[in-house]
């Protein structure tokens, strides 16, 4: 039996949102404090999930079904309301490319800041910087320049390179691969393969079924905050597609 790296049992995540019935300060005062300005909205409603070591796992689901919330919860960004969650290993979340890039600062400054935020120490930051220099194909002059003078593609290259600089135990990818030009996209796919071969588990969210089928072996489909199906990738993909044709 393969080792389990992520085990989730009966996971619930609620969000605190503005109460739609209380739209203005007037409403709040008029209700004499009886109506709370906030209410709870449940996003994940009892998710069970197991991911094995070295597995490449696809996560599918319609917009708003809770995919990103689940990924953020696994990455430790969102605290679950209830349920059990065991994560064995270091997670590298790749949730959006270029988050945290400070446009006014240089590429080098940004590598240092983001690497520090990701929890690297000084020697790891040095290695990561060298990796970004070669992988991103941005020249030293580019990296010394303020990021606001970069093109969108260059920003994506910088952001992606930083996030894959280290080989984690678990990689979480949220539709991040459609960045850069064709050459860079191929490079990204190669790097993901490399990370996969190193024995790392990958959780992959994408709406592109061909991409999912190419990379993943198993998958799950989220429907309205619950896991509707866990199976081999082809079965899940077929189920996911059927969701859109039911009422057609």
């Amino acid at each position: 039996m393969a080792e389990i790296v992520i085990e989730v049992k009966n996971l619930y995540v609620d969000f605190f949102v503005q109460n739609q019935a209380v739209n203005s300060f007037k409403d709040l005062v008029m209700s004499l404090g009886l109506k709370s300005p906030f209410q709870r909205k449940s996003i994940l409603k009892g998710v069970d999930l197991e991911i094995k070591k070295g597995e490449c796992f696809a996560l599918m689901g319609k917009n708003g079904s809770g995919k990103s919330t689940l990924l953020r919860t696994l990455a430790g960004i969102i605290t679950p309301t209830s349920g059990e969650m065991i994560v064995n290993g270091r997670i590298a979340p790749m949730l959006s490319i270029g988050a945290g890039l400070e446009l006014e600062l240089s590429g080098y400054d940004n590598i240092k800041i983001i690497a520090t935020l990701m929890g690297m120490n000084n020697s790891e930051i040095k290695t990561a910087t060298a990796f970004v220099e070669t992988f991103s194909e941005l020249s030293k002059e580019d990296l010394k320049m303020q990021v606001k003078r970069y093109s969108a593609g260059m920003i994506a290259r910088l952001g992606f390179s930083i996030s894959v600089a280290q080989t984690p135990d678990i990689l979480i990818v949220d539709e991040a691969l459609s960045v850069g030009d064709i050459g860079f996209q191929e490079k990204c796919a190669q790097r993901i393969n490399e990370i996969k071969k190193s024995g790392c588990s990958i959780i992959y969210v994408s709406h592109s079924l061909t991409e999912l089928k190419r990379i993943c072996t198993h998958g799950a489909c989220l429907v309205d905050g619950k896991i509707a199906m866990v199976a081999e990738i082809d079965k899940v993909a077929a189920y996911y597609e059927s969701l859109f044709h039911q009422h057609a």
Binding site: R72, S96, G100, M118
Partner: peptide
């Protein structure tokens, strides 16, 4: 101001 970072990295 740092929402984008807080949404992507667990710190």
């Amino acid at each position: 101001a740092n929402a984008s970072v807080l949404k992507t990295i667990a710190i």
